[in-house]
């Protein structure tokens, strides 16, 4: 069923054979995945699984060693920086800590993409900014500075900035990190509402299981830089893969120690 959907639906994001390195360490190892238009794909995995790295490469923040990443049909490993800038007008990103510009008010933060990329007059920009702030339940907060907001409000303001250009692709890095369960659930609802309203393709990187099961259409499970599984919520839940089950049941990882490698590590000879 999933394969059928995949071939029928058009791919908004297609990652093919992606290999990336940090220094000499390989972080992502031949990653292949596809996110269909209008779909919410959750990328999950334990710490150090490479999920945040995968997101950063999808955002075009680093140059891959090999492989391709196609966003809306454009291979971002090959296009010029100008084409990438144009493509970015169709992308919105909500970073883990919000990444609001601290020297600007919430309203200025939300309106920044409009100021930079459109020739709309100031009044229209202000109205559009306030509209997006009310979408995330922050109406009337536009004159506050980011430092005056709570953690949940910062994330919602960052989301308002991410959707201000009505992007086709929306990325979230750990949306529920640092939030209480109620605020996290509210943010999940917001993500679902935005998808419904804008038919945006959404990629969420998280390790929060509750949130994953609430919002995901499909889930990509990463482990040690490799894809363990891509499937629907049910498929992932019913998987008999040991690593996936330990992730779902929050079991501690069993670390296998290779005597030779451990010795090399201790003597500083590790490649």
């Amino acid at each position: 069923m999933t394969n059928q959907t995949e071939t029928q639906a058009s791919a908004a994001i297609k990652v093919e054979d992606l290999v990336t390195h940090y220094g000499s360490t390989r972080i992502l190892d031949h990653v292949n995945m596809q996110v269909n238009t209008g779909e919410i794909m959750v990328i999950m995995g334990g710490s150090g699984s490479g999920k945040s790295t995968l997101l950063r490469y999808m955002l075009g923040l680093h140059q891959a060693t090999s492989g391709s990443i196609k966003l809306l049909g454009h291979d971002i490993t090959k296009i010029s920086s100008q084409e990438m800038d144009d493509l970015r007008k169709n992308m919105g990103v909500s970073f883990q800590g919000g990444a609001l510009f601290n020297s600007m008010t919430v309203g200025q933060n939300v309106c920044l993409p409009l100021h930079e990329h459109t020739t709309l007059d100031e009044n229209t920009i202000q109205i559009m900014g306030r509209m997006k702030l009310s979408v995330v339940n922050l109406g009337g907060f536009d004159d506050l500075m980011p430092a005056q907001l709570s953690g949940g409000m910062i994330k919602r303001a960052a989301l308002a900035r991410a959707i201000v250009m009505d992007p086709k692709l929306l990325f979230f890095d750990e949306p529920s990190a640092g939030l209480d369960p109620v605020a996290a659930a509210e943010l999940d609802d917001l993500i679902l509402r935005i998808r419904k309203a804008l038919n945006t393709t959404i990629v969420v990187v998280t390790h929060d299981l509750d949130s994953t099961f609430r919002i995901a259409d499909r889930i990509t499970v990463l482990d040690k830089g490799k894809i363990l599984m891509i499937g629907t919520v049910e498929e992932v839940r019913n998987s008999d893969n040991e690593r996936i089950q330990s992730l779902l049941n929050r079991e501690a990882r069993h670390v296998e120690i290779n005597a030779d490698e451990y010795l090399k590590e201790l003597t500083g000879q590790k490649e």
Partner: peptide, 18 residues
Amino acid sequence: GTMQIAQEIDALRVIGIS
């Protein structure tokens, strides 16, 4: 430096601002 650790520089780049 503060902007860098708060991911504000990344935010600029993904908004399409050099």
